[in-house]
Design a protein around this nucleic acid. Sequence first.
DNA 1: GCCACTCTTTCCGACATGGAAAGCAACCGG
DNA 2: CCGGTTGCTTTCCATGTCGGAAAGAGTGGC
Lengths: 98, 98
Amino acid sequence: MTAVAPRFDPVVHAPPRLQICGLLAAVDTMDFAAVRDTVGVSDSVLSKHVKQLEEAGYVKVGKATIASRQRTSLALTKAGKAAFAAHVAELRRITEGL
Amino acid sequence: MTAVAPRFDPVVHAPPRLQICGLLAAVDTMDFAAVRDTVGVSDSVLSKHVKQLEEAGYVKVGKATIASRQRTSLALTKAGKAAFAAHVAELRRITEGL
DNA sequence: GCCACTCTTTCCGACATGGAAAGCAACCGG
DNA sequence: CCGGTTGCTTTCCATGTCGGAAAGAGTGGC
């Protein structure tokens, strides 16, 4: 009976990445450190998740060796925004009744 | 620095369970078979997820050996609705900017 | 007694995840 | 030119979760 499949994108759905996407969706661009801080994960963990998002084409990593510091900024790509939006739409569909 | 922690409830957040909760939130009560069908999982998988939801106190399992058939109906408990609502609220907070 | 219908439980391998620690690259101070 | 620091990356490892298949258990039907 044609299950109403979730079509959840696992890359986006995992808690930490969902947070990251949400963060980026709200601000357009954020520094690595800020994300790490806000999401509350360790460097290594954030790095790994970002990498996954990057490989999925959802996040654009801006490595800027500006001034003296290395600043890595993160931003959602168009695909990333689309994926996140689609995900949110799915979630809303699921929560329709509320 | 007081990260805006997700407070995601893993029990509710896992895709299949999120679907189950969404389903139940919408209809109040649904039969095991209907849920299994709608979510698109096998008996065993649904059974396992339901058990987790049940143990978390989120779902009430109504085992009715009515008539000739065994009918197991599922429904969200108050805690379940609350948890689901909280979860949805979290998700919405995350998607604020959209 | 035997079968069918409905879940339930067990067994399994595959995969994702997080934390710690070592690695790297670039830069600053001495 | 060397050592230390910042900032991110990669590796290693232990743990947990997930889903599928198959066997099990309870109940009513033939």
